[in-house]
Design a protein around this nucleic acid. Structure first.
Lengths: 225, 225
DNA sequence: CGCACCTTGTGAATCTCTGCACGAAGTGCG
DNA sequence: CGCACTTCGTGCAGAGATTCACAAGGTGCG
């Protein structure tokens, strides 16, 4: 393949998926550092904070360009700026949560994304007894109003916190309403058309993976260096 | 490594991590099928239900042994049995949740692991005003009682749902108390000693990854100029 | 001003995962 | 019985991710 030769500076180098998944870690670590007044740091230090190794940090960052200074390290503020632009965090994204059960309510009240570029602007449920209730400082709205809600508030990200049985249908309706990314907490496989982003968070799956490794330790016991 | 021959035929072939992460998906799909009375199925069908491709299903299952019938498919009950043994789901695992805020409470009430081999037997918090409260049908206990609670109830899995600032300390205390696997929901990097299993679920990270791909579609619909 | 010392950025080797393609094995119809 | 059809199990090649190791480039002290 040959690049169009377009903006080399424009970071158009196809960032690997694995790298993308680590950028948020670096980002968070860097925010903490700058809060502490640290302004410059080495890949070694960042690696430690992010729980990965230093070579990986350097290679990951190199996909965004090269703004470290050899012999010195990276300027934290430069990295924060560059990564946040790369991740699209320069403005807030409006989010809708569908399914206001235990988990949905917890997510609605969760400080954690609010602070980091995401803003929950709608809570939606299909249960008429829940519609109208207030959670946090939002009113729960009806599933049937989804198209209007999504459109009016410019929502592009939907979080599914419904029972598994309706997850696919909710996903379809979110997408039909204009949402372009979905984070699925329901324990069900959801499929989306090409062009829509989907990620899942599955508690039961995570526990089962832990169970596997707990049952049979992958490291057959010691072997000192 | 040497298989102590914990009991079975082949199976000691070092199952790849990627495969382990998919086994729970197959498991869930199979349970749904058997609930519907389906007893036999092809790799194609299972692939569709799990949202992966058929070759992957066959290869994954081949790591567990080979119990499909060519020309016919797999017996669902055999697969369920085999996978559940592989994942260590033949008995329930006792779980403790630490940090009974919004998220911790939601997790405590979450039907979903209960049904699937995990049983929440302890809720723990360091806040004295929370200790003694009842969530679901469990009483919230003090963090200082962790060693006793973990020991008495044979808890081996800990879920961290605390603020980021104390996640590492809680992790250390869980491990000191005897827990061997940790599922971390706090937005913080936690490190554990060799031999302890750790997985994380990070909402902000997931959203940021979505944000990345939403900002720059990976398939740029290039026009053949 | 030169030299010892850092730390980045990246080519290259290695390891892991994916997906294809096809042989092996089983079924059932005529 | 034989043949067409189905589906598993797997060798292999290619893609992707990780890690090493080192040259390039920059700093600051004497």
């Amino acid at each position: 393949m040959e690049g169009i030769g377009a903006g080399n500076e424009g970071s158009e180098r196809a960032i690997p998926e694995a790298t993308v998944a680590r950028l948020p870690l670096y980002y968070r670590a860097l925010l903490e550092l700058t809060d502490e007044g640290i302004s410059t740091l080495s890949s070694d230090r960042l690696a430690e904070l992010a729980g990965v190794n230093a070579a990986k940090v350097r290679k990951d960052l190199s996909y965004l360009g090269s703004f470290g200074t050899r012999g010195v390290g990276y300027e934290a503020s430069v990295l924060v700026d560059r990564i946040s632009r790369e991740l699209g965090l320069t403005h807030d994204w409006p989010v809708a949560i569908v399914g206001i059960g235990n988990l949905g309510q917890a997510l609605a009240n969760y400080r954690g994304f609010g602070a980091r570029g995401f803003r929950v602007l709608a809570l939606v449920d299909s249960d008429p007894t829940k519609v109208g209730a207030t959670v946090g400082d939002l009113r729960v709205e009806a599933l049937d109003d989804l198209p209007r809600v999504v459109k009016d508030r410019g929502i592009t990200i939907g979080i599914i916190a419904t029972p598994a049985a309706v997850a696919q249908e909710v996903s379809d309706r979110l997408i039909a309403a204009g949402v372009r990314s979905i984070l699925n907490f329901a324990p069900a496989v959801v499929t989306v058309p090409e062009g829509v982003q989907l990620r899942k968070v599955d508690l039961a799956t995570e526990l089962q993976i832990l169970s596997f490794y707990q049952s049979r330790p992958p490291y057959p016991e010691r072997s000192p260096a």
